[in-house]
Design a protein around this nucleic acid. Structure first.
Length: 457
RNA sequence: GGCUCGGUGGCAGAGUGGUCAUGCAGCGGAUUGCAAAUCCGUCAACGCCGGUUCGAUUCCGACCCGAGCCUCCA
């Protein structure tokens, strides 16, 4: 079996992936809090870990990939108030939209999508265990985790308790013994959603759900836990504290974190007004273009999102689909994904830029292939693409189904026929006039040996 | 202040102790009625200063610059 290597945040090093149980791989990725539309930065971990899921799936017989839905959270409560809607109406709406958006990015559906609100008893159990074990305390109706009770607290994020206390910039809530202590369970006001618990009617703290759901759905210890860098602290540090103290064991063997997407070099933020939602971008670009753009940089490097990055991605995909369009009548010879160069690039800590380079090489080889080699080379290109989750649609569709800029396919075909007639009569002025007309409508013609094809730009 | 990442050709972006990333853009050519697409060729980089080495963009140290986290955040 080929070796998969991953950079583990815990050790800071690239390590060979050794599964707990090769028959059952467990992968958990932090999903959305469903109170607004997902933006392109949210899309990055989704696409990155979808790619990892594909790699794991090619390597092992069974992979359980869980991505949670956080459907109880103060941000959702605030959004519901603002919109004058029920909380579950808000969370249901944005859960649906999230699924649509990420599906457009060619992502596979996870094996499990646990909802926080379906797992409240597991969170109560977690909290009770922590109290029983002496890692948590009750104060002013809250249950808090005591960071001082865990010697290795801070090991994931590389922080020392002393430093954190010294550098604390926020006012410490009165119910906390120490600044770093975090909420496991908090009381709910009468108009806020709540569940009965040994500590009164309340709701879980932010970190509780992942610990509880991982344990409930995947087990005490999982292979891989992923998410964005910003989750390392405090979210993942606190999850780790909860799970290790409540259930024993080492909780997660490989922690993976992706870097941010920034917009033209600036951090995406509401105040800068440069937040771009997936939905918004999809109105101008195919989802596959967004996916490709997100994979064009290595996941641990910051990705500077811009018009140029998207146009580049679109151009590259056009090139690949162009190569496939030329051989669309040729049956591809099946190729095992695990023999593809892209797959091998991904084995090395998901080196997607190198995998994309392999795609370019495969595309070029196909373009210049002798006829007898085309079935094999088409198969190779498709196998390389599949592991990256791209080039899965029909090339003709790709080029002709884009945004309709005033001319439908039939109208385009009619104009092409007029032009062919003009060319047959050597009336090139008329032929060029028709082509210019089409270019204005965003349609590019290509005269090939087997006729004229067209595509939308 | 603490912790963590980075600085590669015009742009995007990999990688490596000693000939090549890759793509876009540019330039030259083939092809085309002209184009487009494609193919062939080509230019060009490793923040700064030291050190280790036969040799450093790659290892080590200092410095400069940038980003992120420490507070909700992918």
């Amino acid at each position: 079996m080929p070796e998969l290597r991953l950079t583990n945040t815990f050790s800071g090093e690239r390590e060979v992936f050794v599964p707990i149980d090769p028959e059952r791989i467990t992968l958990y990725v932090c999903g959305p809090t469903v109170y607004n539309l997902a933006h392109i930065g949210n899309a990055r971990p989704v696409v990155v870990f979808d790619t990892l899921y594909r790699v794991l799936d090619a390597l092992y017989p069974k992979v359980i990939y869980a991505r949670n839905i956080t459907d109880i959270d103060d941000k959702i409560i605030a959004a519901a108030h603002e919109r004058g809607q029920a909380i579950d109406a808000v969370s249901a709406e944005f859960t649906d939209k999230y699924r649509e958006d990420v599906a457009a990015l060619n992502t596979l559906v996870p094996s499990l999508e646990p909802h926080a609100t379906d797992n409240i008893p597991a969170m109560i159990d977690l909290t009770q265990r922590l109290i029983d074990a002496g890692n948590a305390y009750i104060s002013e109706g809250h249950v808090l985790f005591s960071v001082a009770s865990m010697p290795s607290y801070g090991a994931l994020s590389g922080r020392h308790l002393d430093d954190m206390l010294a550098g604390a910039r926020v006012e410490v809530a009165t119910y906390k013994r120490q600044a770093g202590d975090f909420v496991l369970w908090k009381p709910s006001e009468d108009d806020a959603p709540g569940w009965d618990s040994p500590w009164g009617r309340g709701r879980p703290g932010w970190h509780a759900e992942c610990s509880a759901m991982i344990r409930a759905h995947l087990g005490d210890t999982i292979d891989i836990h992923g998410g964005g860098r910003d989750l390392i602290f405090p979210h993942h540090e606190n999850e780790r504290a909860q799970s290790c103290c409540a259930y024993g064991g080492d909780f997660v063997h490989y922690w993976l974190h992706n870097a941010y997407v920034d917009m033209d070099g600036e951090k995406m933020s509401k105040s800068l007004g440069n937040v771009r939602t997936i939905r918004d971008l999809l109105s101008n670009y195919q989802g596959e273009v967004l996916r490709f753009a997100l994979l064009s940089a290595h996941y641990r490097s910051p990705l500077s999102f811009s018009q140029a990055v998207l146009d580049n991605a679109k151009g590259a995909l056009d090139g690949f689909y162009g190569a496939l369009r030329n051989v669309q009548d040729i049956q591809a010879q099946p190729v095992d994904i695990s023999h593809s160069a892209a797959f091998n690039a991904l084995l090395d800590d998901l080196n997607t830029p190198e995998a994309i380079a392999a795609l370019h090489a495969a595309s070029k080889a196909l373009n210049k292939a002798a006829p007898q080699d085309r079935p094999r080379l088409k198969g190779i290109l498709l196998a390389n693409a599949e592991i990256l989750g791209v080039l899965q649609c029909d090339p003709e569709e790709w080029f002709t189904s884009g945004r309709d800029s005033g001319l439908d396919a039939a109208a385009v075909e009619a104009l092409i026929n007029d032009r062919l007639e003009a060319r047959a009569n050597r009336d090139f002025d008329r032929a060029d006039q028709i082509r210019d007309e089409l270019v204005t409508a965003g349609i590019v013609l290509e005269d090939g040996s087997e006729g004229t094809t067209w595509r939308r730009r």
